[in-house]
Computed example of a mutant assay.
Amino acid sequence: MELDSTVLNRKEKKLLNKIIFLSKITPHKLVSTDLIKQQPEYDKYYFYQLRSFGLINTYHLTEPNEKAHWRPDNGTYVTEKGLHYKDWYWEHLRQFLYKSVMTPIAISLLTNLVLYLLEKHPK
């Protein structure tokens, strides 16, 4: 899923921030999924939403002496998209404000100035 179409709600942002925080204090930036589930910000739906957006991902370790057996979700890490989501969000907000707020204000000011000058100096 492209980052341009990814918009997180408040609870998803809180969960992502918590996972980023936990990944910074754990070795290899790999957080135990059980540790994430113990956090008050954890909600299964939002966790899977973050994973489907590609902001986090799960890592599976093999069982000792059994190469074919995988344990489900024993580690979670933040992807590059997840690490830079805030930067993208503020850049997207700045562009939105420029296009949606500043451009109409500038056009309105220019139009009013032209009308004022035409009224003040009639032919």
Score class of each variant (00 low, 15 high):
residue 58 T to W: 01
residue 55 L to T: 01
residue 73 D to T: 08
residue 106 A to E: 15
residue 56 I to C: 05
residue 102 M to W: 06
residue 58 T to I: 05
residue 31 V to S: 03
residue 23 S to P: 13
residue 83 L to M: 10
residue 51 R to H: 04
residue 13 K to C: 12
residue 118 L to W: 15
residue 88 W to G: 08
residue 19 I to M: 05
residue 56 I to L: 02
residue 31 V to K: 00
residue 87 D to A: 11
residue 6 T to L: 02
residue 57 N to K: 14
residue 113 L to C: 06
residue 73 D to L: 05
residue 88 W to D: 13
residue 120 K to Y: 11
residue 50 L to E: 02
residue 66 E to F: 08
residue 64 P to W: 04
residue 96 F to M: 10
residue 2 E to M: 05
residue 8 L to T: 09
residue 20 I to D: 01
residue 119 E to H: 13
residue 98 Y to A: 13
residue 53 F to N: 10
residue 92 H to R: 11
residue 89 Y to M: 11
residue 120 K to S: 14
residue 113 L to G: 09
residue 108 S to F: 15
residue 116 Y to P: 07
residue 15 L to V: 01
residue 37 K to F: 02
residue 13 K to F: 08
residue 24 K to A: 07
residue 45 Y to R: 14
residue 102 M to T: 10
residue 59 Y to A: 15
residue 103 T to E: 05
residue 57 N to V: 02
residue 90 W to K: 14
residue 6 T to H: 01
residue 113 L to T: 12
residue 76 T to K: 02
residue 85 Y to G: 04
residue 89 Y to F: 10
residue 39 Q to E: 11
residue 62 T to D: 13
residue 53 F to V: 03
residue 106 A to N: 15
residue 7 V to F: 07
residue 55 L to F: 02
residue 15 L to N: 02
residue 32 S to Y: 00
residue 121 H to Q: 09
residue 38 Q to K: 15
residue 110 L to V: 13
residue 20 I to F: 03
residue 34 D to Q: 15
residue 47 F to G: 03
residue 61 L to V: 08
residue 32 S to R: 06
residue 33 T to K: 07
residue 112 N to D: 14
residue 87 D to N: 13
residue 60 H to I: 10
residue 59 Y to C: 13
residue 23 S to W: 00
residue 49 Q to K: 14
residue 72 P to G: 07
residue 1 M to F: 04
residue 67 K to H: 09
residue 76 T to M: 03
residue 47 F to P: 02
residue 123 K to G: 09
residue 123 K to E: 11
residue 88 W to H: 15
residue 118 L to A: 15
residue 14 K to H: 00
residue 32 S to I: 03
residue 60 H to E: 14
residue 90 W to A: 13
residue 68 A to W: 06
residue 104 P to C: 10
residue 70 W to F: 09
residue 52 S to M: 07
residue 62 T to P: 15
residue 68 A to N: 05
residue 81 K to C: 03
residue 30 L to V: 14
residue 117 L to V: 12
residue 105 I to E: 10
residue 29 K to I: 09
residue 60 H to L: 06
residue 54 G to V: 00
residue 49 Q to V: 07
